[in-house]
Amino acid sequence: MNRAALNRVLLHPAAKPLLWLLCLVPLAGWIWGGFHNGLGANPAETILRGTGSWTLRFLCVVLAVTPLRQWTGLNALARWRRMLGLYVFFYSVLHFLAYAWLDMGFDPAAVAKDLGKRPFALVGFLAFVLLIPLAATSFNRAIKALGAARWQRLHRLVYAIAALGLLHFFWMRSSKHRYGEVLVYAVVIGVLLGVRIWRRFRTAGAVKPAITSQHPHVTG
């Protein structure tokens, strides 16, 4: 299938609803497991760890959209980025609710005390808080109200969120000396952020000679 045909498939009216349903599969799995005793010996930990892992996975997918679009020429991928970003927020909300409910019993004082006592929990909470303005401005009206440039600057917070989410995951797994999965996420996020940095420097290098040629130095 050539690029034009793939773009048509991605732009098909049924493509976005299908992706929307696929993104709900993890949640459906937990609901099914809850009704059929399929969440293991510690259901609370299964849900807490699962929601956290899927938040990080969706974050990696969102970061991958732009490089994939640029490398493959599948510009239709751009129409999915905002929805995928909202699923990052959706699963982060589930993760926080699982923590606040299953670990802390919905006790604000216990949550505040825990955040002050455990740095990895505080880092995860900070990443969650930073996601809120991104989710709140993921609509066309917000883009128009903020202006494209300010909106883009705000949404660069996703890089800080990725770093904080990875640090949260690392600290959580380091207590059990399980670094394999952390390394996978670190490599994926490192590559995706590295590609962006490389493209930015390359673009800046291409623009500078053009500016210089328009304003040549006058010498003796």
Rank of each mutant, 00 (worst) to 15 (best):
W171R: 10
L56Y: 04
V191H: 06
C23T: 11
L59A: 04
K117I: 04
G33F: 01
W80P: 11
W198I: 12
V25Y: 01
C23A: 14
L19W: 12
L24F: 03
G124C: 10
W80H: 15
F201D: 04
M1Q: 08
A76V: 09
L192F: 10
P133T: 08
Q70T: 04
H217N: 04
F139R: 13
A121G: 00
K144M: 12
K144Y: 05
F128W: 12
R57F: 03
H215A: 10
G40Y: 00
L39G: 02
M172Q: 14
L48P: 00
H95R: 02
N140H: 08
H168I: 03
A109D: 13
L146Y: 06
L56F: 05
A121L: 15
L102K: 03
H215N: 14
A110S: 03
L21I: 10
F125P: 08
L48R: 13
V93C: 03
L24I: 04
W32K: 03
L18T: 09
L48Q: 07
Y159Q: 01
T46L: 02
V218A: 11
N37C: 00
R8G: 05
S53V: 04
H155Q: 04
L131D: 05
V191I: 15
A110G: 04
K117Y: 14
L122K: 06
L164T: 11
W101Y: 14
V61F: 11
T72K: 09
G190T: 10
A186Q: 07
W80T: 15
T137D: 14
L131A: 03
G165M: 07
L77G: 11
S138F: 05
R57S: 06
V182D: 10
L56D: 07
D114Q: 12
G220M: 05
R150C: 05
G205W: 06
R202H: 10
A4T: 14
D103P: 05
R202P: 00
V195L: 15
G52N: 02
R8N: 07
L11N: 15
L130P: 08
